[in-house]
Amino acid sequence: MLLASLLDSRLMYYEPQIKTREEIYRDMVSRICRNYPLPICGSELVKLVLERDEETSTAYPTGLAIPHIRMEGFNDTLISVCVPAHHVDYEGTHVSVIVLIITNKSATKLYLNIVAALLKLSKDREAMRTLGKVKDGHYILTTIKQMGITIKEKLTVSDIMISAPVTITPEAKLSELGDLMNKHDIAVLPVVDENKKFLGEVNVLNLLKVGVPDYLMMMTNLNFLESFEPLEKLFESEDIVTVGEIMNKECEVLSPDASIIEAVFLMIKHEKRFYSVVDHGTLVGILTSMDVFGKVFKV
């Protein structure tokens, strides 16, 4: 299915003025309500869209925002596209294309595939630049038509992964690892060499384990010990031990072409919430269970 076939040029427009997110939503909603009879409309609908934005961000780092409403008693999929002349701020993300989607409650799969197609489009910098230059609704539609974007059947890991994750090299010292975890507030990092070749993963438990000798791990419990200071040893070895010595080398990884259900399946099965996405030995991104939850299920 072509993405263009789902679009209606009356719902697509160029916004030359500086407007807030709410003002843009208001314009989009009024265009929709002018052309389609909806059970909920006007300010009430704008409020719903804003509320949805509050829950989890609908903006992607590529400069695309996809606000979305599922409406009961409505049996179609409406897509409104706004290309603002000036970036709109979404909690720090600069958004240059806003796509508002209204679907019925049962069209989840179609919706996810539209999102996937849009995300793919947004990753194509050339295409985004072309779209940014279009100054008219009809042109937006023609441009998208020309791009020949299809809605595929499958949403894959590469569509929702984080593509430029924080990484670390095996030569890095533990102090550096600790700093990175602290700075970015993350508990797991993929370990790569200078060519982005994936070597393993290192997590905060690997780090803490340095301070706990192996023999303690063999005991059934430690509730008789009050004074033992495991972190003493961690501090001592912070600048001596390298990431390579403590990382997990045998990690399950995801392929960028893997389906979302496969990713979810593996996450549940291995009780692993963080996956490195590896393409032919090279790290291309990471995917956490919260990414899946936030971007796919909580839509």
Binding site: N221, N223, F224, E226
Partner: peptide, 13 residues
């Protein structure tokens, strides 16, 4: 002295 502080009674689960 630290060894003598062990509270081994806690070990009986």
């Amino acid at each position: 002295a630290r060894l003598m502080e062990y509270n081994e009674k806690n070990l009986i689960q």
